[in-house]
Nucleic acid binder design. Structure first.
Lengths: 329, 329
DNA sequence: CTGAAAGCGCTAACAA
DNA sequence: TTGTTAGCGCTTTCAG
């Protein structure tokens, strides 16, 4: 059933029906007539027909690298909360860590189909940048800071610095690092820099042999821990760029009877649910993921309303959460 | 730029352009002309205009109760994997455990906007059922079994039965249960029935005082564990309807020095990542969440293709994963 | 193989 | 307030 059939059924004109659904002027009689017919028929206007006229889709494209990650799903939850309150739906693209799909989705969203885009990417290539600057819909990047674009990000450097400093202040002398892909500026590069800053400030020289790069997984953390802890110079603390990596390290320590925090302190980032229930509860840095999602959505919302081209960067702070894994002395 | 402007730019007719994008007949010359113009202009056809004619949105609505749950995100990942391979995008609605939003989203999807719907709900009311039978687009329910509708579900009863039996076979005599909301047929009712079946079969009478209902959270598991373990009749094993609940129980045991599995065996359901790294690794039942998502998507796909009205129910089996928390003798 | 033209269902300008 | 009507950008007959 379309609007004119429905109008006939209701005994009113098409414009009356259109006005009913668009807060237009309408007398109470007509309104009642329409509501009665609505009850009878269950008519609903077609979104696409509306979109073709108004150019408004009430859809926001969300591009993310994976779904089954605690941090990403928290961000998405924040996004969803704010946008759905404003009547937007999420058009979700899970790129499964495939850069190409990030590009094709951006391409897909570039022209039409959505009113705005939120991008949660880990690595930005030149292709990303080129495409992003050609976007014709408002776009916000969450979780990374990219000059010249709207971003909501975390203070990754500060988070890593504080966590490392915490362990150093407790007397650690041989700090080690297990980080993430350095092409990922936030979780990779900045967290490494934070670690290095704290170490250097403590008057210790950063030893490249004490630094490993892992994948975002427990297994990878386990492997890197084995590498670091079976060398001759043994670390007395390990800063891990994510809680997942830290959990892997802990697994290894458990199997090899390395006592935590006695022999080795461990610190992570992300304050995941898992960290709290590990066999030694994990000290970590709480990052405000859900808030990042909310703020990203708010930024997008105001961008969509104003249509302005001012770029803004919002950096969220962090909280140190100390648990047993660093509780020495 | 619209199709006719673009056609002019390319020096071909509107229909040629349309055919280019729709695998229609087209000579190589025109094809080349169009591709050249595409390069120049970056033109992309409008989805809504296409939809208004073809009635095809290439969108699937996915309704879920929350995002930040390991099981749900794994299901969603499976859905996304299959559907995106077929060129569909996901229109995601996070109802935040609000039944009303489930209803309004179903309502929203009922008529148009999406080509199909996948529903991950925990509780079905009469309103759900009424709305579901009025859906005009193919719909599949994942994670629950609802008579008369397309479902992909788990063998929740069997999973609970096997986990409980495992503990009973190891000599447990005073089994306890911490379950979920009984209105949730899968995670609530069926898992309870599975527990009861195993207990009864072992010649033990199910003691209602040994059964508690928790929320889907660690904290709630902790509280219920306190209740069960501070009574005078102390359980020697607890079957928990979810790993999260089990993690809470374990927290309590750790604080009160109850030894696992010596004093108490614990079994969960879901085989979450967390279970593996708990201070006592948790025995659990692996449910094939990602597969459930994939199969749900496949079912929807074939439903959308055939337009048939045959209802199918697919039940996936489970795997027991035994870890330390039940390793006795 | 090609192009002209008739809609798809809706909104909004315009005239009443 | 109301109703009529001209498009929005596209697909798809239909006649060539």
């Amino acid at each position: 059933m379309n609007i004119s059939e429905f109008a006939k059924e209701a005994g009113v004109s098409v414009s009356a029906v259109s006005r009913y659904f668009n807060d237009g002027y309408l007398s109470d009689d007509k309104r009642a007539l329409i509501e009665a017919a609505l009850e009878r028929t269950g008519y609903m206007p077609s979104y696409s027909a509306r979109t073709i006229r108004t150019k408004v889709t009430k859809l926001v494209g969300v591009i993310l690298p994976k779904l089954s990650s605690e941090s990403i799903s928290r961000v998405t939850e924040g996004i969803s909360e704010v946008l759905s309150a404003e009547g937007f739906e999420l058009l979700l693209v899970n790129t499964a860590n495939d850069y190409k799909r990030e590009i094709t989705s951006l391409e897909l969203f570039r022209q039409n189909r959505v009113d705005g885009v939120i991008l949660l990417a880990s690595v930005f290539t030149d292709t990303h940048r080129a495409l992003l600057s050609k976007m014709r819909v408002p776009t916000v990047i969450v979780g990374q800071q990219l000059k010249g674009f709207n971003c909501v990000c975390h203070n990754d450097l500060g988070a890593a610095y504080s966590m490392t400093k915490l362990m150093l202040d407790k007397g650690a002398k041989r700090p080690a690092f297990i980080g993430a892909n350095q092409d990922d500026v936030a979780a990779g590069r900045d967290r490494r820099r934070g670690f290095e800053k704290a170490v250097t400030e403590a008057g210790i020289t950063v030893d490249p042999k004490m630094c490993e790069i892992a994948k975002f997984s427990m297994d990878s953390g386990y492997e890197k821990a084995k590498l670091l802890l079976s060398g001759r110079k043994k670390p007395d603390c390990i800063f891990c760029a994510t809680d997942n990596i830290a959990a892997g390290v802990m697994q290894y320590c458990r199997e090899t009877d390395i006592s935590i925090p006695g022999d080795l302190m461990i610190g992570g980032v992300g304050d995941s649910r898992m960290g709290k229930v590990l066999y030694v509860p994990l000290s970590s840095v709480h990052l405000h993921y859900k808030t990042a999602g909310r703020e990203g959505a708010n930024m997008l919302l105001s961008e969509m309303k104003s249509g302005s081209e001012v770029h803004r960067i919002l950096q969220l702070e962090y909280d140190i959460v100390e648990r047993e894994s660093t509780k020495r002395g």
